[in-house]
C-alpha cells in the first residue's frame, strides 16, 4: 500500500517538476549570438542600440541602472553581464573583487578614438589601462523651469530657498550629492576630512528638509509634470525626456561653486559568456560617428576629439565648464566616510 502510494507520489511529483521546466525552457531563447550590456540609464540612445543589432546581427540584451552602488549590487548577486559601464571609483573595486576581464586593446580597432589625456586620467585608478576604456565625463547640476524661476542664482543656494519648499528633487546618489555639497562648502568631493564631511552632511540634511524627495526613477516625470521646479540631477536624464515643445522652457546651470565630475568606463566582465561580442559592442561604441551621436543625444561635451568634429548639437555644458570640477576618485577603504553618514543619517529617514 505504501509502496504504491510512493509510486503514485513519484509520478505526481515527476509531473509537477517537469511541467514548470517545460514552461521555462519554452521561454528560454534559442542559442543565438547575443551580448548582455548593463549600462546607466540615459547613456546610449535607442536608435544607436538598434543600429548595433542591425549591423552586427548580435542580439543586444540591454539593462539599465541608476547608481554605481546598484550596479555593483546586481553584479555581486551573480547576474551575468558581458559589458558594464562603472564609474571611475568603482573600477578598482571591481578589479580587486575579480569581476573584470583584462581588455586586449588590439581587438578594438577604434581604441584611439578616445583622447589620450583621458587614458592618462584613467591610469590613476586602472594602472596601465588594463581593464577599462573611458567612455564619458560629466557632472550633475541644476535643472529648472525658466518661466517659474526667471533669474536663478547660478549657485546651489537655490536648494535652501524657502520659496521652493517641496518643489525640489535631489538625485539619490551618495557621491554626486556629497560632491555638490562639499564644493558648495569650498571643499573637495574627494576629501577624507571627517570634519568637512560632517559639515556637508548637515548641509544635505538642510537641503532634504526643503526638498520634496530624493529620487532617481521618476525624476524626469516629476520635473515634466512640474511637481518639482528644481532638480539637482544629471541634465540629460531630464532634458532628453521632455516634450520638444516644453524643452525650450527648461534650462540648466552648473553651480558656480563647482563640483565633482564623474568619469565612466566600459569594462568586460569575467562572468560573461560572450567575450567576442563584448569586444564587438565596445568597438562599435568607440566609432567616432557613434560616439558623436551618443554625446549629441544627451548633450555631453564628450571626451573624443575625433567625435567632436562630427558633433552637431550644443552640449548642456562645455569641457571647459568642467575645469572647476575634480574627477571623482576611488576612496578605497575610506569610502565609508561618505556612505555611512549617507546611509545612517540621511537616507535611513529617506
Amino acid at each position: 500500500m505504501i509502496i504504491k502510494e510512493t509510486k503514485l507520489k513519484k509520478s505526481v511529483f515527476g509531473l509537477a517538476a517537469a511541467l514548470p521546466l517545460l514552461f521555462l525552457t519554452s521561454c528560454a531563447p534559442e542559442n543565438v549570438s547575443e551580448v548582455n550590456v548593463f549600462n546607466w540609464s540615459y547613456y546610449i540612445p535607442e536608435d544607436v542600440r538598434a543600429q548595433f543589432v542591425q549591423e552586427t546581427g548580435i542580439k543586444l540584451n540591454y539593462e539599465e541602472f541608476d547608481t554605481n552602488e546598484a550596479m555593483l549590487a546586481k553584479v555581486r548577486t551573480g547576474v551575468n553581464y558581458d559589458v558594464c559601464f562603472p564609474g571611475a571609483e568603482f573600477v578598482p573595486v571591481m578589479i580587486s573583487d575579480g569581476f573584470l576581464e583584462e581588455i586586449d586593446s588590439a581587438k578594438l580597432s577604434n581604441y584611439n578614438s578616445i583622447d589620450e589625456s583621458f587614458y592618462q586620467k584613467a591610469d590613476s585608478f586602472d594602472p596601465g589601462n588594463r581593464y577599462a576604456v573611458p567612455y564619458n565625463v560629466g557632472t550633475i547640476g541644476v535643472v529648472y523651469w525658466k518661466d517659474e524661476i526667471p533669474n536663478p542664482p547660478h549657485s546651489l543656494s537655490i536648494l535652501l530657498d524657502p520659496a521652493y519648499k517641496n518643489r525640489i528633487a535631489i538625485m539619490d546618489d551618495t557621491r554626486e550629492v556629497y560632491g555638490a555639497a562639499m564644493a558648495y562648502l569650498g571643499f573637495s568631493g574627494n576629501s577624507t576630512n571627517t570634519g568637512q564631511i560632517a559639515q556637508a552632511t548637515r548641509l544635505i540634511l538642510r537641503w532634504k528638509a526643503n526638498a520634496l524627495k530624493f529620487e532617481t526613477n521618476q525624476m524626469a516625470t516629476l520635473f515634466a509634470s512640474k511637481e518639482v521646479l528644481i532638480a539637482l540631477n544629471f541634465p540629460e536624464n531630464i532634458l532628453s525626456e521632455l516634450d520638444p515643445a516644453l524643452a525650450d522652457n527648461a534650462a540648466f546651470f552648473l553651480p558656480r561653486e563647482g563640483g565633482l565630475a564623474y568619469m565612466d568606463c566600459m569594462v568586460i566582465l569575467k562572468n560573461g559568456k560572450n567575450k567576442e561580442n563584448a569586444y564587438a559592442f565596445i568597438d562599435f561604441i568607440l566609432r567616432p560617428d557613434i560616439l558623436a551621436r551618443i554625446y549629441d543625444a544627451f548633450g555631453f561635451p564628450g571626451i573624443s576629439s575625433q567625435a567632436k568634429v562630427l558633433q552637431t548639437g550644443t552640449p548642456y555644458y562645455t569641457a571647459s565648464d568642467l575645469e572647476m570640477h575634480n574627477i571623482r576618485m576611488p576612496l578605497y577603504e575610506n569610502n565609508y566616510l561618505y556612505t555611512t553618514p549617507w546611509e545612517e543619517e540621511i537616507k535611513i529617514g529617506n
Binding site: T67, E69, A73, D172, T339, W342, E343, I348, N350
Partner: peptide, 12 residues
C-alpha cells in the same frame, strides 16, 4: 524602503 535601499543600492 530602507531595506530595499540597503540591499539594492547601498550594498549594506
Amino acid at each position: 524602503n530602507s531595506i530595499a535601499y540597503n540591499i539594492r543600492t547601498a550594498n549594506n
